[in-house]
């Protein structure tokens, strides 16, 4: 399952944005540890590759064209048997098609 980076934000500490001179040094507090963990989470999250953008109805034909072109490379001489190409290519096209929702409500 693709993990969406956008939905995960590091926890914001209670002190963020507030500058209180009497409390400017606040090391060792639990909230600071939480900040570090949050920063670590953010660092990890930033290494997560985002998924490609959602497919749209306008892109359907272009995607079908790509599927056909890439199938050309997989099937045929020295590749997978041509007799199976239609089954596999159609399966992928159907999957892409079933994923694209045309909202006409």
């Amino acid at each position: 399952m693709v993990k969406k980076v956008g939905g995960k934000k590091p926890p914001v500490s209670a002190g963020t944005g507030k500058v209180e001179s009497t409390k400017s040094v606040q090391t060792g507090k639990v909230s600071d540890v939480g900040d570090v963990r949050g920063a670590e989470k953010q660092a990890k999250s930033s290494r997560v590759r985002r998924p490609t953008r959602p497919m749209t109805a306008e892109e359907r034909e272009h995607l079908f064209k790509l599927i056909h072109e890439e199938a050309d490379k997989m099937f045929g001489a020295n590749g997978l048997p041509q007799s199976q190409r239609a089954t596999v290519e159609n399966a992928v096209k159907q999957t892409v098609d079933a994923s694209i929702v045309e909202e006409d409500d």
Partner: peptide, 12 residues
């Protein structure tokens, strides 16, 4: 590829 159900192509 369960992400397909959300209209997303598998991550490249």
């Amino acid at each position: 590829f369960p992400e397909l159900r959300e209209g997303l192509l598998p991550a490249s």
